[in-house]
């Protein structure tokens, strides 16, 4: 009974029930879908997105899963994820570096093919692509770290000597040889995966990981003294007193041998 004492009309009652039911069902279906959607955001570490792909969150709002990038990839690197078989969100493009790495085409046909901009058309130089970052994950099995000259990951890198170098150090095991450690520079590595593909081990010792896994980050408030000093062109702290160097007996004093123990910086106003 309504407040006026008249019964609610059957139409009105039905309208209210129907609306409530529809709204409830809509909410339920919507939340189920939203849950599924948030679940689909977990991109497995070995699945790499094509060059120019937006960050994963933005990518999933932009990629319509048409597969045109896959069609235009001349090396059959890219695949569309199949439901229940591949990790990435159903129908979205990815590649597995160990299977087929990205050949880094100069004209980036996959980006050109994308109708929605999920692959960013502003990427015009393939060297600027950041599909992931190579990480030498297993120094214990890497042949170069064992003191051998495998070098394959270094040799195949399309950005050789910039994205990956061989860093020399003494081989303490043999005592007389060198270790040529493959060393990745993340700011130059495109994540194409050629190093991972060509690693001669049964399981690659160098792997391309998504940047979120591969990299740490520097705290925002950290300043590197040597960089700051270079920027300023002078010591960061004014008025450092240059104390006299006390030398062991027998060694010439600083004053008698200028430059022998000169500080790395010049004091302001102390010309020579």
């Amino acid at each position: 009974m309504s407040a006026t004492g008249k019964p609610i009309s059957p139409e009105r009652r039905r309208f209210l029930t129907d609306t409530a039911r529809a709204a409830g069902g809509c909410l339920l279906a919507g939340s189920a879908l939203a849950y599924l959607a948030s679940d689909a955001k977990a991109l497995p570490a070995e699945a790499l997105r094509p060059p120019g792909a937006l960050a994963e969150e933005a990518f999933l709002s932009a990629c319509v899963r048409c597969g045109l990038c896959v069609r235009d990839c001349p090396y059959d690197t890219l695949k569309l994820a199949e439901l229940g078989e591949d990790g990435p969100a159903t129908g979205s493009p990815f590649f597995t570096a160990r299977d087929v790495p990205c050949e880094m085409c100069d004209d980036i046909p996959c980006v050109a093919a994308c109708p929605t901009g999920a692959l960013d058309p502003d990427l015009t130089r393939i060297d600027e692509a950041r599909m992931g970052t190579a990480v030498l994950v297993d120094q214990e099995n890497c042949l170069n770290f064992l003191g051998l000259r495998c070098d394959v990951c270094y040799r195949v890198c399309p950005v050789i000597d910039e994205a990956i170098t061989l860093e020399l150090s003494h081989n303490n095991r043999s005592g007389k040889h060198a270790i040529f450690a493959p060393t990745v520079y993340a700011d130059k590595c495109t994540g194409c995966g050629k190093c991972e593909k060509s690693c001669v081990l049964p399981e690659a010792a160098i792997k391309v990981l998504p940047i979120r896994l591969a990299r740490g980050s520097s705290a925002e408030h950290y300043l590197k003294g040597w960089e700051e000093k270079e920027r300023k062109g002078a010591p960061l702290v004014d008025g450092i007193i240059d104390l006299p160097d006390r030398m062991p007996d027998g060694l010439p004093s600083v004053s008698s041998d200028p430059g022998a123990f000169e500080p790395a910086f010049k004091l302001p106003g102390s010309s020579q």
Partner: peptide
């Protein structure tokens, strides 16, 4: 009218999740 409500739900799920929600299923 259920399908219209579902359409609303699909658009809502897309907005909430920031993904193209219906394409998942």
């Amino acid at each position: 009218s259920t399908r219209l409500w579902l359409l609303v739900g699909v658009l809502g799920a897309s907005a909430l999740s920031g993904t193209i929600a219906w394409e998942l299923v």
